[in-house]
Design a protein around this nucleic acid. Structure first.
Length: 1005
RNA sequence: GCGGGAGUGGCGGAAUGGCAGACGCGACGGGCUUAGGUCCCGUUGCCCUCGGGCAUAGGGGUUCGAAUCCCCUCUCCCGCACCA
């Protein structure tokens, strides 16, 4: 790592068993005793005082018992245990082989579990309380699983290349590396303060040359591969060359391979690579000064970052052939335990459509090939539409309008050429938003040309219209107004014939009919339902040579280059032919040169007629190099684009496994151990299915549903095809944590007011005497509602903060932050503490008495419930159960809790509040950390209650309850129940009595 | 527009066909206190003639029994958006 390690280095202090008293309080009259107030230390300024609803509170004499669990106590305990863990390497998990191997580890050889968070981008703002929600959850889960006997791999890295650091650097004049490294240090210390159980040896940062060496290495693997669509996998490019050489494959133009010049051969090979340079329309964002991937452009045609306009421009850029993997990326979703919405989003994004290509001949012109999902409707194709910018248009257009051309088809222009030029001009000026605006009347213009419908010989007019997109399918459609709503609208505007080819139901009163039904007006298809008609027409088209079945995707190849400084340099140079040449593996990493002028060249955001300029191109002595790439020293020019910030996150889960390996990206033995597929896996329905392998639990925000999670699946599959990994998916199980939302307050002018100064009174919100409006949404500096984990740690301690975040609700649900509610979690820990530690003397007080039967049964029921909650990541209900147990313990304890209750309670608490749990565990006489102590196990015999109370319903209403022995038979329960509700029956004879064993009795009269 | 998800006390939430509101916040009452935005104990869905009645967005259905399953409507959130 280029940055400081997570450990700050232990202070070497021994762990005192006595907590220190906190006399400081009396000495600082300005300080308020309430933790809630201290949550905002910055707000001690006088201006805040008149705003608060309550009068300023005088200093409080401290009658807090000296050994109570308070924020001060937590702040003494927590760093101490963090040091102990660091020194002992408590959370280091050994590998099977390599420098991280350790056969002595308590969990070496145990069943493995790889738990991971989506690593953060270390922004300059630091963490707010929303960020660590997922991290705390995975930490709690990992800590639980360690205690439950699993061998857990858990660490954290930093995704540190990318635009924000660069923009911040440009603003401040500081080098992005400095900015980023400072931020990483800050993040590490913030996370450490929360007590995260990371294996810090495994942490990575994407900006570290020792890390991006392998990012570049993977790029070269991709560059040096092609996709064999027969074998459905990537293969080394050398095998493609061999296929050409041995004539197992013919060249694009049919000439023998041997007759091609060296440059021609390279062009052919380059056109097959999975990473390739192409001149194609891309998303150019002048405001950011870089091109962007489709995934980074919003529906409004603006940059996801910065919200600048994005323009389509034809530029020479690096692309990744992700489309080759479209089918596998769709199909393999079935093997993943992921939230359905995320799978659905990926399916939509890939957008696989099955249909056919059909070729329509054009007299005196090139024939037009269309894609359609409804080849069965071809008999109803009464016109064609080509995207305005489609190159074929120029070849179609005749010099004059055909005789009898309707006025409205010409757009009022004298010649087709003029009409097309005018329409194109309008279309290109429109923004994406205008073009896709709803309820917009269809526009278009006749090209003057006609095509022939191959199934019936009909001549049909060819239009251009902006409702057909150049980037999808073939950029041209056959229009079937009878079965397509858009085509119907267009046909109405331009007065085109409408022929139904599917019989709508009698009650259908719409226009275009898109549903199923028997084919009509379709010759050989008549009477067939849609699916059969599709099948038959495809067979016919193929037999007659008019088309073939086809699959089309919405997914486009991934635009992989950026005109930015702060990213991984491409391990690519260009020779005198201008064609790309890979650097040798031995030349990696190709380090990012340290330049002074790293600013991107940005432009007026609205000026589309600008050219991207890569900052690295200004580093002339870096760009121009002499290298020996195997054929002697030659002059080369380096690639000056950098990789997008997604590159590092495409594979970092693999580097965690073997972070120090200099020979390979990850040792296959280590990869197979942590990520490899299990021999069998069963789905929810019990069917066995292929196990993808991969990380056992990956937690992160849903915002990466189609970006990071699609790209990383793609890279992983390439690595799988090339034999570098044994898992065919990177992340077996995914959970999207919810967001922590916050209230923000604005005054009448819309200005934000500090959220912690606003009070609620009489159902309204007030900032002093000013009534303010409440908004609900994100936490952010500009919204003046940020609460940081640092403040929470200072005011309550990390354990309280962790417990609060985990108890707020289910992990995957968003919820509002409420600082005032945090105190509940502190009270809970305080009560646990008080069970074991005398608040006045600090002495440990534990009773060795046995538990009464009811408490023992409760304990075991709670152990059982907590275990299942932990397995299911239902931390909120697990904590509720622990509170319940604590409340019982308080009720039965007079002088210290019984050990038989206190010890399991502390162990179960440990995943959530690890510091205080360790402290109490030690105070109860255990020398070693509880990290690897077995999680309590419920005794099945104690899970069965001695007696059961049955509610008795009469006609669905509870009219009484009876207590019977747990082993009472159904007849006995029935009798007892009927006796109980005899009054409610009023002498009526029950028609039916339902006894649900262990649940309830229902009587029907 | 299409697709997906969700609507439960003042608030966060629990209960996935079987006693609606676990647990927490807040509020109220009490204790401890000179004091209390501490701590402890208790109460806390609504109505009530104290028998009970009504309550899970609204309406209908299935069922002995529905917050939970089905249909319709409304509201909110997310994704996609002329994808042929």
């Amino acid at each position: 790592m280029s940055t400081a390690g997570g450990s700050k280095g232990g202070t070497g202090r021994p762990a005192p068993v006595k907590a220190t008293k906190t006399p400081a309080k009396k000495a600082s009259p300005a300080k308020k005793a309430s933790p809630a107030k201290k949550a905002s230390p910055a707000k001690t300024r006088a201006a805040a005082a008149p705003v608060a609803a309550a009068p300023v509170v005088e200093p409080v004499p401290s009658d807090v018992p000296p050994f109570r669990y308070t924020a001060e106590m937590a702040n003494e305990i927590e760093p101490r245990w963090q040091d102990i863990w660091d020194e002992a390497g408590t959370f280091n998990s050994p590998n099977p082989v390599g420098p991280l191997a350790d056969p002595q580890h308590p969990r070496a050889g145990a069943e493995k579990l790889y738990v991971m968070d989506m690593f953060p981008y270390p922004s300059g703002a630091g963490l707010h309380v929303g960020h660590p929600l997922g991290y705390i959850a995975t930490d709690c889960y990992g800590r639980y699983q360690r205690m439950a006997g699993r061998h857990v791999l858990y660490t954290m890295g930093f995704d540190a290349f990318g635009l924000p650091a660069e923009q911040y650097a440009v603003q401040t004049g500081k080098h992005p590396r400095l900015v980023t490294e400072e931020n990483i240090v800050r993040f590490r210390s913030q996370l450490r303060r929360l007590g995260m159980g990371y294996d810090n040896r495994r942490s990575v940062a994407t900006i570290d040359p020792r890390f991006y060496r392998w990012t570049q290495w993977i790029f070269l693997q991709i560059f040096n591969s092609w996709y064999d669509s027969t074998q459905r996998k990537a293969r080394p490019i050398s095998e493609l060359v061999a296929a050409f050489e041995h004539k197992r494959r013919s060249t694009p133009d049919g000439r023998p391979w041997a007759n091609l010049s060296a440059v021609e051969r390279r062009r052919v090979v380059d056109s097959h690579r999975l990473a390739y340079v192409s001149e194609a329309p891309v998303n150019w964002c002048p405001g950011l000064g870089t091109v962007l991937a489709n995934e980074e452009v919003t529906a409004e045609g603006r940059s996801e970052r910065g919200n600048f306009p994005v323009f389509k421009r034809s530029l020479k850029q690096w692309m990744m052939r992700i489309t080759a993997y479209a089918d596998r990326l769709v199909d393999d979703l079935d093997a993943l335990d992921w939230p359905e919405p995320v799978k659905l989003m990926q399916r939509h994004w890939i957008g696989r459509s099955t249909g056919a290509h059909i070729t329509f001949p054009v007299e005196d012109g090139p024939s037009i090939r269309v894609f359609t999902t409804r080849p069965d409707t071809v008999f109803g194709a009464t016109y064609m539409v080509v995207a305005p910018e489609h190159a074929i248009v120029d070849e179609l257009v005749p010099l004059t309008w055909p005789k009898g051309t309707k006025k409205k088809w010409t757009g009022g222009h004298k010649t087709p050429i003029e009409a097309i030029r005018a329409y194109r001009a309008i279309a290109s000026r429109e923004t994406e938003a205008e073009r896709t605006a709803e309820a917009r009347e269809k526009t278009g213009v006749f090209t003057g040309a006609f095509a022939t419908n191959p199934v019936n010989g009909q001549l049909i007019p060819i239009f251009i219209a902006d409702y057909v997109l150049a980037g999808y399918g073939t950029g041209a459609i056959m229009a079937v107004p009878g079965q397509d709503e858009r085509d119907w609208e267009f046909a109405e505007v331009f007065d085109l014939p409408i022929i139904r080819t599917v019989q709508p139901p009698d009650d259908f009163d719409g226009k275009a009919y898109v549903g199923d039904g028997p084919a009509i007006n379709s010759g050989l298809l008549d009477g067939l339902p849609v699916a059969a008609a599709k099948k038959k027409i495809i067979e016919w088209l193929e037999a007659e040579g008019h088309g073939a079945g086809a699959v089309t995707y919405r997914l486009r190849d991934w635009l992989f280059s950026r005109q930015r400084y702060w990213g991984e340099p491409f391990p690519i140079v260009y020779d005198e032919t201008g064609l790309p040449v890979a650097l040798l593996e031995s030349m990696l990493p190709l380090e990012l040169p340290d330049v002074d002028d790293f600013s991107p060249r940005t432009f007026d955001p609205d000026d589309a007629d600008t050219e991207p300029e890569a900052p690295l191109s200004r580093a002339r002595d870096w760009v121009e190099v002499t290298l020996d790439l195997g054929d002697g020293p030659r002059r080369y020019t380096r690639e000056t684009n950098t990789m997008p910030n997604w590159a590092g996150s495409c594979w970092y889960e693999l580097r965690y496994l073997d972070p120090t390996n200099e020979q390979v990206l990850v040792d296959p033995v280590n990869e197979r151990y942590w990520m490899g597929p299990r021999s069998t896996q069963r789905d929810a329905a019990g069917r066995s299915r292929a196990d993808s392998g991969g990380v056992d639990l990956y937690v992160g925000g849903v915002e990466h549903a189609v970006l990071h999670l699609l790209y990383s699946r793609f890279w992983h599959k390439v690595l799988y095809d090339l034999g570098h990994v044994s898992s065919f998916e990177p992340f077996r199980r995914l959970i999207n944590q919810g967001y922590i939302q916050a209230y923000a307050y604005t005054d009448s002018r819309g200005a934000y007011l500090p959220a912690e100064e606003v009070v609620e009174r009489d159902g309204a919100f007030w900032h002093g005497d000013v009534r303010v409006r409440r908004e609900y949404g994100k936490m952010g500096k500009s919204l003046k509602n940020v609460v940081t984990p640092d403040e929470m740690c200072a005011a309550y301690g990390a354990d309280t903060f962790r417990v609060y975040e985990m108890s707020m609700g289910p992990l995957d649900v968003s919820r509002p932050w409420e600082t005032r509610a945090v105190v509940g979690s502190q009270r809970f820990l305080q009560r646990v503490w008080r069970l074991i530690v005398d608040e006045q003397t600090g002495a440990t007080r534990i009773a060795e008495s046995s538990l009464d039967p009811q408490t023992e049964r409760l304990l075991h029921r709670i152990i059982d419930g907590v275990r299942s909650d932990m397995e299911g990541l239902r931390f909120n209900t697990a904590i509720a159960k622990l509170i319940e147990l604590t409340n019982r313990a308080t009720a039965i304890s007079t002088d210290g809790a019984p050990r038989a209750l206190a010890e399991p309670l502390v162990l179960m608490l440990a995943p959530f509040a690890p510091h205080v749990a360790e402290e109490l565990w030690r105070r109860m006489g255990h020398a070693a950390s509880l990290t690897y102590v077995d999680f309590p196990v419920a005794d099945p015999a104690l899970l069965v209650a001695e007696s059961v109370t049955y509610p008795v319903q009469v006609n669905g209403k509870v009219r009484g309850r009876v207590e019977v022995a747990a082993d009472a038979n159904e007849e006995a329960v029935r009798a007892a129940a009927l006796a109980e509700v005899a009054g409610a029956l009023e002498g009526r004879e029950p028609r039916k009595v339902i006894v649900v064993p262990g649940r309830m009795v229902s009587v029907v009269v």
